[in-house]
Structures are given as structure tokens and as C-alpha cells.
């Protein structure tokens, strides 16, 4: 009767965070190219360089964030197993 037991979807979320990072690094490659054909809103070279670096920096931060979340997930997972082995209680989420 209860809803079927669900799988852990957090890995999907962690992949997403990493993908945001990859997307922002990917986007940084096109900034200079896309700036060439502008009629309105052309940016200076300084701006392009600064924005590009910031995109790459944030991309790297998101990927590091994803790795940290992955470590957290691993720690939680092993914690959950121990709790089950000793029958000391239910996992904190439930």
C-alpha cells in the first residue's frame, strides 16, 4: 500500500551540479566569438577576458561542489549501512 521504495536520486542531482559547471566552462569559449557579430552591446576586450575567467572559475567551483556533495553522499551511505547493521535506528531521512 505504501508508495514503492525509492532509489537514491541524489546522484542525478550531483551530476546536474557538475553539468552546470561544465556548461559554464563550455560557454566561456564562445564569449569572444559571439561578441564579434554584435550590432548593439559590444563588449571591450577587458570585459571579455574578465567574464571568461569568471565563467571558468565558477565552472570549476561547481565541479568542486559536486565532488564535495559526492563525498557527503558516500559518507551518508556508509553511515546508513552501519545504522542498519547494528539495528540502532532508522536513517535520518525517514
Amino acid at each position: 500500500m505504501a508508495a514503492p521504495k525509492r532509489k537514491n536520486h541524489n546522484w542525478c542531482g550531483i551530476t546536474l551540479v557538475a553539468l552546470y559547471g561544465l556548461f559554464s566552462i563550455y560557454a566561456s569559449f564562445f564569449l569572444a566569438y559571439l561578441n564579434n557579430g554584435k550590432i548593439i552591446g559590444k563588449l571591450s576586450n577587458e570585459a571579455i577576458v574578465g567574464i571568461k575567467e569568471a565563467f571558468i572559475m565558477w565552472g570549476v567551483i561547481f565541479i568542486i561542489g559536486a565532488i564535495l556533495l559526492m563525498i557527503r553522499e558516500y559518507v551518508l551511505k556508509s553511515g546508513r549501512k552501519e545504522a542498519k547493521d547494528t539495528e540502532s535506528g532508522v536513517s535520518p531521512h525517514y
Partner: peptide, 9 residues
């Protein structure tokens, strides 16, 4: 009732 992370009945 919370049946799981982000799941409810």
C-alpha cells in the same frame, strides 16, 4: 506521511 526524501503520502 513522509515516505522518503521528497515523497509524501
Amino acid at each position: 506521511t513522509k515516505t522518503g526524501p521528497g515523497e509524501f503520502t
